[in-house]
């Protein structure tokens, strides 16, 4: 059971990483980040079945932070869209040195 959940979360995490690396749309990118967070949550839950409920506490913490992050992140994306009329990250390079 642990092996399957770990495998599944690894698959999810990798999909998230690949999404972050390859997609340009900020919304999709954001969703991929959520995917990676939830992949980690899945590992926590999986381990908690073997080592006790401590992992589930972390899951709640991660979900809370993810919710807060989603709020801030979506707000930023909306602000960005209002200014630039796009959420394509290739057109946004404000961090260029």
């Amino acid at each position: 059971m642990l092996a399957e959940s770990l495998f599944f979360s690894a698959v999810l995490f990798t999909i998230g990483v690949i999404g972050v690396l390859t997609r340009r749309n900020a919304i999709i990118l954001f969703m991929c980040v959520e995917l990676m967070l939830n992949a980690v949550n899945l590992t926590f839950v999986g381990f908690s079945r073997v080592y006790g409920a401590g992992g589930q506490v972390f899951v709640f913490l991660v979900m809370t932070v993810a919710a807060a992050e989603a709020a801030v992140g979506l707000a930023i994306i909306i602000a960005l869209f209002r200014h630039r009329h796009t959420v394509d990250l290739q057109n946004i390079n404000l961090l260029k040195g």
């Binding site: 972050v20 990118l29 990250l89 961090l95 260029k96």
Partner: peptide, 18 residues
């Protein structure tokens, strides 16, 4: 030289991070 790494492209940063 260092500033050339700072492309501003999020994708690049993500690649470097990974």
């Amino acid at each position: 030289l260092g500033s050339q790494l700072q492309s501003g492209q999020l994708g690049t940063y993500a690649w470097v991070l990974v």
